[in-house]
């Protein structure tokens, strides 16, 4: 599509930029286009607000994930116990 030539982007592209921006993967020109879109689009403005808040909450919560090895070890223990029963 011709989005490289025009500064005006649609909502799906704006939300896509916003998602990428949450992971610091949006380019400067993408961010500029998104900001321009936000001037006249209330819906996307709300999306950006909520999405940014979500990023902050996840950082603040300090959630940890289990490693694949840890999960594997648990799975093996469970399987073993089931076959022993």
């Amino acid at each position: 599509m011709s989005n490289k030539k025009t500064l005006l982007i649609d909502c799906s592209e704006a939300t896509f930029c916003c998602d990428k921006a949450q992971y610091k993967e949006a380019s400067v020109s993408e961010k500029l286009k998104m900001l321009l879109h936000l001037i006249y689009c209330k819906k996307c403005k709300k999306y950006v607000k909520n999405n940014t808040k979500l990023t902050k909450l996840i950082e603040q919560s300090d959630i940890k994930t289990c490693t694949e090895e840890e999960k594997k070890a648990w799975k093996e223990k469970i399987e073993q116990e089931i076959t022993n029963q």
Partner: peptide, 8 residues
């Protein structure tokens, strides 16, 4: 399914 669903 316990591990995949609930371990985290």
């Amino acid at each position: 399914k316990w591990v995949d669903k609930y371990s985290d």
